[in-house]
């Protein structure tokens, strides 16, 4: 193994939202408008209410889009709500969404963001109060110290 260091990010959640095909872009846009970063969208096939309606089932698109967005704990509720509203999940047959806690995530973090985030805790706390924290500003911990 290389001696490269992996930076773990904690306090992250993943929101999964399943909507009818072609609605995903609206949901992603809404999430980004309230500060979410990236989204990954996949096509999926769903069953459930569609098969129980007889021929009326054709009105519900069999093809679904599955949106996965990783958010920080602080922004999670806000993003969740925005996605719910944009996807119009309060209407019948539109879809479903849920949120899971993540142990950790890892990705590329620009050096300047790293430096800022790993500054003394008090400073970070003060900053967090002033402005909503983004996902990538979570505390940095060296790889070896994090155990189960």
């Amino acid at each position: 193994m290389s001696d490269r260091q992996i930076t773990y990010l904690t306090d992250a959640l993943i929101i999964t939202c399943i909507v009818q095909a072609s609605h995903a872009d609206d949901v992603v846009k809404a999430a980004q408008n309230v500060g979410a970063q990236g989204a990954t969208v996949t096509y999926a096939r769903g069953t459930g209410v569609r098969e129980r309606m007889g021929l009326m089932g054709v009105t519900i698109d069999e093809q679904k889009e599955m949106v996965r967005i990783i958010v920080s704990q602080e922004q999670s509720d806000r993003v969740f709500e925005a996605m719910y509203l944009a996807g119009e999940l309060d209407k019948p047959g539109m879809g479903i969404m849920f949120m899971n806690k993540l142990d950790r995530i890892a990705t590329y973090i620009p050096d300047e963001v790293l430096a800022e985030a790993s500054a003394p805790k008090a400073k970070a706390k003060a900053k967090a109060k002033a402005a909503p924290k983004k996902r990538k500003t979570a505390t940095r911990r060296p790889a070896k110290k994090v155990g189960k």
Partner: peptide
């Protein structure tokens, strides 16, 4: 087992119109 859904007129319309 899943029951067959009975849709009222309004619900049918709510599904058919956007479709």
């Amino acid at each position: 087992k899943p029951q067959r859904l009975r849709l009222g007129f309004e619900q049918t319309m709510a599904l058919l119109m956007p479709y």
